[in-house]
Design a protein around this nucleic acid. Structure first.
Length: 821
RNA sequence: GCGGAUGUGGCGGAAUCGGCAGACGCGCUAGACUCAGGAUCUAGUGAUCAUUGUGAUCGUGGAGGUUCAAGUCCUCUCAUCCGCACCA
């Protein structure tokens, strides 16, 4: 018998598929489309890791499964190829970032092919190629034209290690998302994309994304951070200001205000403290706050520090004066950078007032309480209650007062309803070389001038110096100095490049029309495929890539480039691959190399193991013994199939005359049903595989003298069902069965509900809810018949001897429960 | 603190509608074949007790509840993981 040698058959079929262009996207436009997409990788120098293998295995099963089920499948792959590591390699080892990246891209591509993934390589997209970034620039200009790209000077996040600014989404707990360095504040003029214009639509759109994990939707909602409240204007008479707004979600507590707090960076602070006793101290404090890292400034356990400016503000409704403070716990970039301090009804204000001896005024009493007891307050009261000490609003509930006071403020011109978002505009400038150049020049006469679209792409120059200190693009005179597209005079090029998240925010659209030289994609091509039916990747992009992509899609929708306004119909986030309970990492020395596993067992084993060992959305702890188990299973499949090659070839007639044959036939149909549902709809690859294992066990247990027809059919269909999971071994076996064409072009087997029906079923007999007996009855037996038959059985009679039957519950086809005492 | 999830044998995990808990795999035990076994095949494998066979009791983090019947539904509670967190 032929031996199972994955090391031979896998490369063999991979080259056959490559030669035949087996995975090329079909042009059969009469079929429904299915767009299966896995997040494309960053081509690091390390090659693929197990997380990639798992990600691609899931995508490949779905793509192949849909293909066998009559869909026209788009299953592309590419590389997210701009980014810092290439440039760091240039700085550290003097290599060319382009060459370094292209080499890695090629390596990753080979490894992806070696996994047997069914990508349409003709649609391969690398974001670092001029053919691609041409249109990243085009996109930037589209944003610019639509007023969605702008320059602004402001305090930004700076990563000293990466020597570049970062968007808010890219700072995690005060640390750089890429290198974990502490992020510091800098004042710089930078390019932003106006994602805040889309805050509401990005939020509302989440409700429609019912096929996204709730977790990701919650994270995005949280990130957008919509907060409805009121803006309330206080006056500062000494500055002659009538409108100094604070933002609050609790306008109902307005009468409880006992002070006002400004953020240290608030523009009014210098004017307020001028000539005041605290001027120097506060000035120092502001300087200190600016130096603080994100982490030490915003952690919730950071102590509240504040200073009295000595200035006062006037309450818009009572006309009373309250002191104005400056404190670290108020952030300039949220709301208005100013808050009203209501210690009685806000936890932070309560702590702050306690520390500095500021008055606490109760204006809301808990239900059932008659009088305020300030002295005894141990914490702020933030819940529902009745207003007191609030003028004409006394007696109202919290809810009533919120709208009444807001309304009143509007009437007197001191504020009104406002919505605030936590989401900030997307800072997209990066002071680095290996990214997409921002297509803008600065002209002394014309100012900021976009490069005309017909002059794109602005290509990255080669005459640059990588010193690790400054942006290499500033060292290229050929790049930097240019002429103004508008007036022709000398002009300077923008030397910042774009955040690589822009590159990845539209690549899924490029796949639909990857060779287009005029446009990022032709609308009709994108409309043919979009939205992505299944998008598969890690949860770490929940508020980065996935939010940016949604934003970009909405803008392109508004620009009438595309019909859909959500890019990913269904999102699947896979779990991490662990080893010995922790994340694989070089420092822990617990990395399992995919290529070593493939060398030892083959890609089919690797794929099947990652799919079988755990549910796809949960963590997967790598287990060498489990891999052996899968390898043994595939060997078992191989031997069993080889044993029946002749039989399958002969295709004997299926007779189903005896119960054993009927049993195998039923098992076969059951398996087809389960695998179809589990793999096709439920992302339950582990249970789909275990169902196939049961079928294999069933076939192996089938008696040699049994009906040959059903056996042949079962063996053949088993191979078909395994095909999406283990494409190589099944292709080999399929050809051994005598077929000329690929198993992957074959239709997915169907099942017949009628074949699932049993003639006789085992009925469980419970007495008082406990299983006491089992009895085989005709499947068609009705309630009355079942009850009668069961109660007449000797065994049952013995069991209820001496007891009174109170009740008999009959579930046809399943069980009888006799309640007796 | 807020949000999302999870908790089932020695282990990974099944159980889609409330209806035999533990499918499938790993591991383990015994046996067969074998020069050999980390190959293959056969049988067994939740715990406790009993046993010639049949069996009995307990058992899905914990405590209650609903129900003829609960891993599944309800109330409370504990633990773990992930995300966010001075957001006014």
């Amino acid at each position: 018998m032929k031996k199972y040698t994955p090391a031979d058959i896998e490369p063999k079929w991979q080259s056959v598929w490559a030669e035949n262009k087996a995975h090329q996207t079909s042009e059969e436009t009469d079929k429904p489309t299915f767009y299966a997409l896995e997040m494309f990788p960053y081509p690091s120098g390390e090659g693929l890791h197990m997380g990639h293998v798992r990600n691609y295995a899931i995508g490949d099963v779905l793509a192949r499964f849909k293909g066998m089920n009559g869909y026209r499948v788009l299953h592309p792959m590419g590389a997210d190829a701009f980014g810092l590591p290439a440039e760091n390699a240039a700085i550290q080892r003097g290599v060319n970032p382009r060459a370094w990246t292209l080499k890695n891209m090629e390596r990753i591509r080979q490894e992806q092919s070696r996994l047997g993934n069914s990508y349409d390589w003709d649609r391969y997209v690398g974001t670092c190629t001029p053919e691609y970034y041409h249109f990243t620039q085009w996109l930037f200009l589209l944003f610019y034209e639509r007023g969605l790209a702008y320059r602004k000077k402001g305090t930004v996040n700076w990563c000293p290690q990466c020597a570049t600014v970062l968007a808010n989404e890219q700072v995690e707990n005060g640390l750089c998302w890429r290198c974990d360095s502490e992020v510091v504040k800098k004042d710089l003029e930078q390019w932003y994309l106006k994602i805040t214009d889309y805050a509401d639509r990005l939020l509302e759109g989440l409700d429609e994304l019912t096929e996204w994990p709730e977790k990701v939707r919650a994270m995005q909602r949280n990130w957008i951070g919509k907060s409805e409240g009121a803006q309330i204007s206080f006056t500062i008479p000494e500055l002659g200001l009538t409108e100094v707004p604070v933002f609050t979600t609790r306008p109902d507590t307005l009468y409880g205000v006992s002070y006002m707090v400004l953020a240290p960076e608030h523009p009014l602070v210098p004017r307020l403290i001028e000539g005041k006793p605290n001027e120097q101290t506060i000035d120092q404090f502001i300087g200190q706050m600016k130096k603080e890292t994100e982490l030490s400034r915003t952690g919730s356990d950071v102590e509240k520090i504040g200073y009295d400016t000595g200035a006062v503000a006037v309450h818009p409704l009572t006309g009373k004066e309250i002191p104005i403070w400056v404190a670290n716990y108020v952030l300039m970039d949220y709301g208005t950078g100013a808050v009203m301090g209501v210690p009685a009804h806000d936890e932070r204000d309560f702590l702050f007032a306690g520390k500095y001896g500021l008055p606490i005024r109760t204006v809301i009493l808990p239900p059932g309480q008659e009088h305020g007891k300030n002295d005894e307050m141990k914490e702020a009261y933030v819940d529902e209650g009745t207003l007191v000490n609030s003028g004409s609003f006394d007696g109202m509930s919290k809810r009533e007062a919120i709208s009444a006071i807001t309304h009143h403020l509007e009437e007197v011109g001191s504020g009104g309803k406002t919505t605030t978002y936590r989401l900030r505009d997307w800072l997209v400038s990066r002071q680095r070389y290996w990214g997409c150049p921002i297509p803008i020049v600065y002209c002394d006469s014309c100012g900021v001038v976009p490069i005309p679209k017909e002059d794109l792409p602005v290509t990255l120059p080669e005459d640059v110096t990588f010193d690790g200190k400054s942006n290499p693009l500033t060292t290229s005179d050929s790049f930097r100095y240019t002429s103004c597209p508008s007036c022709g005079k000398e002009a300077r090029r923008e030397t910042d490049t774009m955040d690589t998240f822009i590159d990845s925010s539209w690549y899924y659209l490029r796949y639909t029309d990857p060779k287009n030289k005029e446009l990022p994609f032709a609308p009709e091509k994108a409309n043919e495929w979009m939205a992505v039916d299944d998008y598969i990747g890690g949860v770490e992009h929940a508020v980065l890539h996935l939010l940016y992509s949604r934003f970009v899609t909405k803008v392109l929708h508004d620009a009438e480039m595309i019909q859909v306004d959500e890019p990913f119909k269904r999102l699947f986030t896979l779990g991490m691959v662990l080893k010995d309970g922790s994340k694989m990492s070089k420092s822990k020395g617990n990395v399992v190399s995919p290529m070593e596993i493939i060398e030892k067992y083959g890609a089919d084993t690797a794929r099947m193991f990652v799919l079988f060992a755990a549910p796809a959305d949960g963590e997967l702890d790598w287990n060498d013994a489990g891999v052996d188990g899968i390898y043994r299973f595939l060997n078992r499949v191989w031997r069993m199939a080889q044993q029946h090659v002749e039989l399958v070839h002969e295709k004997p007639e299926v007779k189903l005359e005896d119960s054993v044959a009927q049993g195998l036939n039923r098992l076969l149909h059951q398996t087809v049903k389960k695998v179809t549902i589990d793999a096709g709809d439920r992302y339950q690859f582990n249970t789909a595989i275990s169902a196939i294992m049961e079928l294999v066990n069933g076939i192996n247990a089938y008696p040699a003298e049994g009906d040959r027809g059903v056996l042949a059919e079962a063996v053949e269909k088993m191979v078909l069902m395994l095909a999406p999971f283990v494409p190589h071994i099944t292709e080999e076996l399929w050809h051994d069965f005598g077929h000329e064409s690929s198993v992957h072009k074959k239709s997915w087997p169907t099942y017949d509900e009628k074949a699932l029906i049993l003639d006789e079923v085992e009925i469980v007999v419970q007495i008082n809810g406990k299983v006491r007996h089992k009895s085989v009855l005709p499947a068609t037996a009705d309630k009355a018949m079942i009850e009668e038959t069961i109660l007449a059985e000797e065994k049952v009679k013995a069991l209820i001897e001496g007891k009174t039957i109170r009740k008999v519950v009959v579930v046809p086809g399943k069980l009888v429960n006799i309640v007796a005492q």
